[in-house]
Nucleic acid binder design. Structure first.
Lengths: 237, 237
DNA sequence: CAGTGGTCTAGACCACGAA
DNA sequence: TCGTGGTCTAGACCACTGG
């Protein structure tokens, strides 16, 4: 256990247990370094980590204080569907039901416009787990950003998996809602009419340019979004 | 702009833009410090930040490499409902519909058992926005962990808000699903039968002890969980 | 074995901002 | 003003692990 880790854990324990309450002042870096018999830089590193985690706030001249948790955050893991299904030991297939190039339309432009210069590839398909329908996918891909998509065969690999390896580092924004299945959607998923669906919408971009938009519809009771987390003040992404 | 920040941003730009691909080797700390004319500790700090953000992986003797993003994460903000509604400029009320102390039962014990030593306080209520129903809340509170809850009047303040200020630093786990409203739930929320509801379940604990479990039911189309985020390898909480 | 990151030191200077 | 955190330096030693 490094000295930095000792300092960080001791302070964190006092904060999480309530020994120190929001607003309480922590010792100065100089005081802590004296107590642990270490350099101030070591203390600084420990407290920087606590700041990054949103546990404390630091103000020059004033000192360090236990933060007031304002917004609770939950870190959801959004796995690639193919990987998720295969990870459960089930066979996976993606069935393309519609695939066509369309000119750009101000469809989902309000939230995060796609780069529509060369048109958009529109794909509708079905994710299958063990030959049974698992989720509906409706996707738009910017051909200006991903020209290769026009000639890619998405029967071999789902658009999500393909884009993930094609553009490894992207940023995204999610919107999660619930909706009732339309007649067609219910049929596709082998669900009763009006069944509750979990809708996950994702806008993805790279270097400020909109790359893809996708809406995934899951049977509401079959797919769980789960998170482990903690409260933060929202400092760190 | 600090030197550390320059180094971090330059590397991050190369990774996000694809100039550097997953698996590519980055320069050593010594090389970078020479190029920027700074101390190695400064480079180390910059690369430690990239590691924390999941952008790179570092192995002794081998070097630093662009990470392969495995799991996509989305950081959802889970606001306090009262704060959320008031923030929209609407009036907020919490209506308690049922409140009783019950002995511990192995209800939700499988996921994260509550500390049931002194029994559990069971609350069912309705969050109201502008006098209209907004969400159903069903909650269990451990009286062993929060004895004051037994005598608290939750007509003045919702259980969620009260617990938030009573136990500022807790940890939680969320589960998000969609379900069809039961007849009673539809009536409570003034929705048609079978309406799709967004269900947010939260287990909260503090210092390894289960504090509370809550299930919130929102009209699926009225409440959006939105996140801003990016891909990570899941290194940092 | 030897290169690499991980950690630490004892100092330094500076910018901020509360008193 | 001057205490505080923010940053940086030029070194050091060590642990790990790939070659």
């Amino acid at each position: 256990m490094t000295i930095e880790e000792q300092i960080r854990r001791n302070l964190e324990k006092d904060i999480r247990s309530g020994t120190l309450s929001p607003g309480d002042r922590l010792p100065t870096e100089a005081e802590i370094s004296a107590r642990y018999g270490c350099a101030r830089a070591t203390v600084s590193k420990a407290m920087a980590a606590l700041t990054a985690d949103g546990l404390i706030e630091r103000r020059k001249k004033a000192g360090s204080f236990v933060a007031l948790p304002s917004v609770r955050t939950a870190v959801l893991e959004i796995p690639d569907i193919a990987a998720l299904i295969l990870g459960r030991g089930l066979s996976y297939d993606f069935i393309v039901q519609e695939q066509q190039v369309r000119p750009w339309q101000p469809d989902h432009g309000a939230e995060a416009p796609l780069d529509g210069g060369n048109g958009l590839l529109s794909i509708e398909g079905l994710h299958m787990a063990a030959r049974a329908p698992f989720a509906i996918e409706r996707r738009l891909i910017s051909l200006a950003q991903v020209p290769d998509a026009a000639t890619q065969d998405f029967r071999a690999i789902s658009p999500g998996s393909w884009l993930l390896q094609k553009l490894p580092w992207t940023e995204a924004r999610h919107r999660i809602t619930a909706c009732n299945a339309s007649a067609a959607e219910a049929d596709m998923l082998s669900l009763p009419r009006q069944a509750a669906l979990l809708s996950v919408e994702r806008w993805t971009w790279r270097s400020q340019a909109g790359v893809t938009f996708v809406r995934l519809l899951f049977p509401g009771n079959r797919y769980d979004l789960v998170s482990a987390f903690g409260p933060t003040t929202g400092k760190r992404a």
